[in-house]
Structures are given as structure tokens and as C-alpha cells.
Design a protein around this nucleic acid. Sequence first.
DNA 1: CCCTGATTCGC
DNA 2: GCGAATCAGG
Length: 203
Amino acid sequence: MAMEWTEETIARLRDLWQQGLSTAEIGRQLSVTKNAVVGKAHRLGLKPRPSPIRRAAKAAPAPTAEATVAPAAESTPVAPKPEVTAAPAATAAPAPQKASAKAQAAPAAAPQPKPAAAAPVAEDAAPEPRPARAQPRTTAKSALRPVSEPRRRSSQSCCWPLGDPGTPGFHFCGATPLPGKPYCAEHAQLAYVKLRDRRDNVA
DNA sequence: CCCTGATTCGC
DNA sequence: GCGAATCAGG
């Protein structure tokens, strides 16, 4: 049977995707494969994320010679070469990456709502926007910028995970989130906790 | 080898 | 619509 993409799951997918998590990471949290994530993301229409590759089209789509005409190829003889370095993650997403062992992502480990447990933020400030279960790997190649993320309002429902991702009872809070936040007021408190205070405030 | 996302195509 | 298989780049 195929995965039941409920409003909830889809909302989560959208959110995680928007947060810049890798497809595999999202898949782990959603208990699906990265393929499923990618596939669904495609069908959902979202997908403008930096891709490592740009697959050369195998089947040549009947190249009609008409398109060969270069429009206004007079002013600029050479294109600025924009490349595929869009990398929106650098501007808005924390860009989590590099996990030594995926084994650590075991459901029994820390998928529980203990998000703040791994928040790598300076104490006393800078909320970590995501209840990352385990310390998200960070290649350190991309410095995260907690600030400047005006676009894209958060989901319409609180994305706080309840239960173990992958277990039947797993679900998301679903309450109305704070403006600009992926979590409701209640869970935002847990998500955006100061390091010095987040000893064991996780129920 | 690991990772990443993209596309195809049988279901 | 779904996602494994496959592809392709880093």
C-alpha cells in the first residue's frame, strides 16, 4: 500500500522541505524513503531546491531547429554563467547535513519531542527553528543564518512532532502556529528555548 | 564509498 | 498517485 499522504504529513513535508532539510532527512522523520519524499515533493509542486545534479535528458525531446535562434545575442556574446548555485539554503535554511551514522537516527534514540535537546544555539538567544530530534549533522560548510527569513509563512498548523516518527501514534500538534513560526505558542516555547534553560523542560 | 536530489516507470 | 529503481553529480 502506498503511503497515506495526509494533510498533516504533507504539511510536515512542506515545512521540513522549506526548512532546507535533505530529502533523506525528511524521509527519516516522516518514516518514508527519500524517494517518496522527492516524488511527493514533485507532485506537490514544491521543489526549487539546489540539486547536486542536472541529469542530462536521455530522450532528446525532438529538438526543433527553430529554438536554435539566440535572441538578442548581440549585446552579450558570453553569458554571465549563472550556474546552478542557487543554493537558497544558504540564505534561509540551516542546511543540515552530514550524519556520521544514520543508525543514530533510530526511532528509539531521540525522535521524541525533545527537540531543544540539540539546539546548537548561543545561549540566551537565537532560537533554533526546528525540533531536530538528533543533532542534525552539519558539514559546517554553510554557516546558518537564523535571521532574515521573511518569506514563506509557516505552516497553518503546528508542526511539533508528538510520538515517535514511524510509529502508528505519531502525529503533529496541528494547533495554530505563531505568526512566522512553525509551532503553536505552546510548542514554540519548547522549540525556542534558551540553552541555559533547556535542561529538562521537555516533558 | 558516502552523500545529495531527479527522473523514470511499473504498480 | 505512489515510490523503488535508477541515474547522476559531489
